[in-house]
Amino acid sequence: MRLDKFLKVSRLIKRRTVAADAADAGRIKVNDKVAKPSTKVYAGDIIEISFGNKTVKAKVKEIMNTTKKENVADMFDYI
């Protein structure tokens, strides 16, 4: 799954365009490498997102094309 879509579906970032803009600006890393919006995300990958002075790290547990709010916790774990 594309990085921007995963971030939207998992609700780490609310909109896919916002996720794509953040990736284009170099604020998202996948496995310690700066990622593009089209970067493929797999189970076990570590995603690091920089929001100003705050950084969020998450490990991908499962890839789902769609999910309900209650099942978001199945997609990733905060590190």
Rank of each mutant, 00 (worst) to 15 (best):
S38V: 10
K54Q: 09
V60I: 15
A23L: 06
G26P: 06
V60T: 11
R27N: 11
S38Q: 08
R16T: 04
K61S: 10
K36G: 05
D32Y: 08
A43I: 04
D74T: 09
K8P: 01
M1P: 02
V30P: 01
M75E: 09
V60M: 10
A35S: 12
K14Q: 09
E62F: 03
I46M: 08
R15M: 08
P37W: 08
D32R: 10
D45P: 04
K68H: 03
G52T: 05
A20E: 13
D4S: 06
D32Q: 08
K40V: 13
R15I: 09
I46C: 01
K33R: 12
V34W: 02
K36C: 06
G44Q: 15
K5S: 12
V9E: 11
R16S: 04
T67R: 00
I79M: 11
K36F: 07
R16H: 05
N53Q: 05
K36Y: 06
D77M: 12
Y42C: 15
K68Q: 05
R15E: 10
K69A: 09
V9L: 09
M1S: 15
A20S: 14
D21N: 10
R11D: 01
D32A: 10
K57Y: 10
K69E: 11
I49T: 08
D4I: 03
M75Q: 05
A73K: 05
L7I: 10
D74S: 12
M64W: 01
V30Q: 05
K8N: 13
N31R: 09
N65V: 12
I46T: 07
K68R: 07
V72L: 06
K59D: 12
A22F: 11
N31M: 13
I63Y: 11
T17F: 09
Y78I: 14
T55N: 07
K68F: 04
S50K: 13
T39V: 12
L12A: 00
D32L: 09
K59G: 11
K40P: 06
